[in-house]
């Protein structure tokens, strides 16, 4: 069952075509909840990337040993294990960032995106392809989170990565918790608009 895509194509697929946040609209909770700064998005992105890559590789390695009847429990167990690992590592080495992310690191275990990738990709494809796919998905999630964080941090507190760039606070509203919904909604609409625009243009030229 060889995969005809190259590794770079798999990564690009996760970042652009099947971006977990904007295109697949999965794992929205952290996208709304803690995307107040770029740094938060980056840290959670790292955690998700780690869990996604590790689980994909693990499942891909043992895919022939998994009994079909206990497929889902095995996925859950794998994900939970890796989430526990990253949770402990972050708590030990980056306590400050960990405190900011609060409960969301532990909640990675319930993220639909990871289970979905295991079910759709890792349990069929070889280890190498699963690794690249996991990397792409994780990066896609990370970039999505960071984009939302960028918009909210810039508009809410006039800063990027904690550095004051604007010198004033344009709209405090964006840093308020409920603004996450608006930012995600508006950005989705924006991406839709680009897609529609692009298709229309293509349609005219061809």
């Amino acid at each position: 069952m060889a995969n005809d895509k190259t590794s770079m194509q798999l990564v690009a697929n996760g970042i652009l075509k099947e971006n977990p946040i904007f295109r697949l609209a999965l794992s929205m909770c952290p996208a709304v909840g803690i995307s107040t700064t770029v740094m938060n998005g980056f840290m959670l992105g790292i955690a998700v990337l780690f869990v996604q890559v590790c689980s994909s590789v693990t499942i891909s390695m043992v895919k022939n040993l998994i009994h079909p009847r206990i497929r889902i429990p095995t996925y859950t167990l794998t994900i939970a294990t890796w989430v526990t690992v990253i949770d402990m590592v972050l708590a030990a080495y980056l306590p400050e960032a960990y405190a900011k992310m609060g409960i969301f690191v532990k909640l990675i275990v319930a993220f639909a995106i990871i289970t979905m990738r295991l079910e759709m990709f890792a349990c069929k494809e070889p280890v190498g392809a699963s690794f690249w796919d996991g990397l792409g998905m994780g990066l896609g999630f990370m970039i999505g989170m960071m984009t939302i964080g960028l918009v909210r941090e810039l508009l809410g507190s006039g800063a990027i990565l904690g550095y004051d760039v604007l010198g004033f606070k344009p709209l405090l509203f964006f840093i308020l918790p409920c603004a996450g919904f608006f930012v995600v909604g508006l950005m989705m609409a924006f991406f839709n608009y680009i897609e529609v625009f692009y298709k229309r243009k293509k349609g005219f030229t061809s």
Partner: peptide, 15 residues
């Protein structure tokens, strides 16, 4: 508006 159909508008309502 067509670009808002589906999830985007749902998010804004939820907001």
């Amino acid at each position: 508006p067509p670009t808002f159909k589906g999830l985007p508008i749902a998010f804004i309502v939820a907001g």
